[in-house]
């Protein structure tokens, strides 16, 4: 009973908030180009859902591509770092430099360098999203229980056997935790890259629609795009959470 109430509570709270928002907009006669009410936002979405949905799909495509690149690159670099301390020393500072450099600052360069707009956006998004996968997977590979490593050594395990049968599966929870952070970062990266690229970029994502709506003072449409982005972020976070729970349950048995 209390748990079902707890489940309804955030929805209820949100509805009250939306009601107050709409009421304030009506009561104070706030013009929609300053702050549209929720009804105006829903109407804006209903009036333009074709374009907005297509924009959502476009942004999600970039996000997903960037996430896949992040996962592959992060795991590959983490493996290289685990394989040799020389490679670790060589890679680590550059990974950190790439991570701490604001992507907004390098996005214009990347968009100039990479001619293909879709690719340019993916590169920008991947640059900020690969680090959590890399650092988490590296931490997971380094945290293999030393007794299990001893056991593998005692039984004459090869390097590859130790990697595939012990270190990689042992690092899986770390990798998945990193992937979850990277998922939301990839969305942020995709949006930032679209903003920077503007009409010179792919010109079809949600961030571009937000820019466009801003220029045209179509503020309710801008909010509609924002709401879609928020939902996309929540969906990615939840989906990667489910993926992690599923894979770990599969790995360790019910």
């Amino acid at each position: 009973m209390s748990s079902s109430l707890e489940r309804v509570a955030p929805v209820f709270f949100g509805l009250i908030g939306l009601g107050l928002w709409q009421g304030a907009v009506w009561a104070l006669a706030v013009p929609p180009y300053v702050l549209p009410g929720p009804i105006a936002i829903v109407n804006a979405y209903a009036g333009d859902y074709g374009t907005l949905n297509a924009a959502l799909v476009s942004t999600l495509t970039v996000t997903l591509a960037a996430l896949l690149v992040s996962a592959a690159l992060g795991v590959a670099l983490a493996l290289a770092m685990a394989a040799s301390s020389l490679l670790r020393a060589a890679i680590q500072p550059w990974a950190v430099i790439l991570q701490v450099t604001p992507v907004v600052a390098i996005a214009p360069l990347i968009i100039i360098w990479v001619n293909q707009p879709f690719l340019a956006l993916v590169v920008c998004a991947a640059i900020i999203s690969f680090f959590p996968v890399l650092s988490n997977t590296a931490a997971g590979l380094a945290a293999t229980p030393s007794e299990l490593l001893d056991l593998f050594r005692l039984n004459g395990a090869t390097r590859w056997q130790t990697l595939f049968w012990l270190r990689l599966p042992a690092a899986l929870p770390y990798f998945l935790a990193g992937l979850r952070i990277s998922g939301t970062l990839a969305l942020v990266g995709a949006v930032v890259a679209e903003f920077v690229a503007g009409s010179g970029g792919f010109a079809s994502g949600l961030a571009y629609r937000i820019l466009e709506a801003g220029y045209r003072l179509e503020i309710p449409r801008m909010f509609a795009a924002l709401v879609l982005l928020a939902f996309a972020g929540i969906a990615i976070y939840a989906a990667l959470g489910f993926l992690a729970a599923f894979l770990l349950r599969k790995r360790d048995g019910a």
Partner: peptide, 15 residues
């Protein structure tokens, strides 16, 4: 494989 070793923890592969 000619020496069996048992550690303080069971150290099984959880998967």
């Amino acid at each position: 494989g000619e020496i069996g070793f048992v550690f303080q923890d069971a150290t099984l592969l959880p998967w």
